Simulated assay, not measured.
Amino acid sequence: MNFEWIAKYWPLLIDGAVQTVALLVISVSIGFVLAVGLAFARVSGGPVIRNLSLGYSTVFRGTPLLIQLWLLYYGVGSLLPLVPGLRQSFLWPILREGFFFAAVSFTLNFAAYQSEVLRGALLSVPKGELEAGRSLGMSQWQLTRRIWLPRAIRTALPTIAGEIVLQLKATPLAFTVTVMDLYAAAFKVRQDTLLVYEPLLVVTLFYVALTALITRAFGIVEAQVPIRR
């Protein structure tokens, strides 16, 4: 095993790790907010809103993430330069980058999967707790903010942690749209040095360490906020 190349390529590896973590944080944080809205639309929305939410979830969960990513990057991305004035706007430096399309596709995909998790968690909250809140004079917003949503999130924490780990393992797909994430950095190292296993081992250790960190963090949260029976 030869790891002497790390001394030369460590800045590239660090930049790739930052890109990977940034994709994960953006897609998970924004995707979770979208998922909450989609879940409530399924549970308590009207027929139109409920069916729209179901359709969104079905489309994004029923197609591979790679296809969604390519449709955005090669499809929508190829049409953006045709929008009048867009190239001269302050948004163009962001919209022309593959990172933007990767973040959007990962976010929309995560929201679809997470909405199903939260929908099940919302339905699992005992009706007695909601009725108790109403009997105390809580409005629907207060009931949702203080009882329904926190209780559902606590119930879904183990599944949420698993979904975040799956999202982390999907980030190397961003390499296919020119994002210089950690896997892309390892690929660059392989091209330059003709080493195959060593760069991949470094990438593997990073993903294992980050997975362990995510799992540990959620374990601490679960221990601090036990489920009330």
Rank of each mutant, 00 (worst) to 15 (best):
T20M: 01
E4F: 06
Y9E: 11
V28G: 00
L66Y: 11
P199G: 07
L65C: 07
T144H: 04
R151H: 12
V43D: 06
G133N: 09
L80E: 01
P47K: 15
P172S: 07
A170I: 03
G98F: 01
G45P: 01
V196A: 12
F106I: 00
T155S: 12
N109E: 04
T107K: 00
A161F: 05
F187M: 14
N51I: 08
L168Q: 07
A170D: 14
L108F: 13
L168S: 06
E116Y: 12
L123N: 14
A7W: 10
A223S: 14
Q88F: 07
F175A: 11
F101Y: 13
R216C: 11
A35E: 01
R216Q: 12
P226C: 10
N51H: 13
I6S: 09
A112D: 05
V196F: 14
Q167P: 00
G55T: 05
P126S: 11
G162W: 02
M180Q: 15
F101G: 00
A161K: 06
T176R: 00
E116S: 13
A121C: 08
V59K: 06
R134F: 07
A17K: 04
N51S: 15
Y197S: 14
P84G: 08
S135I: 05
V48K: 04
E222H: 11
S139D: 10
L136Y: 13
A39S: 10
V208R: 00
L65G: 13
L91S: 04
I67W: 13
P47E: 13
V59H: 08
I6Y: 13
I147H: 05
R87T: 12
L108S: 08
G62R: 06
G37P: 05
G62L: 06
T171E: 04
L200C: 02
R61L: 07
A35G: 05
L82R: 14
F100M: 12
G162I: 01
S44N: 10
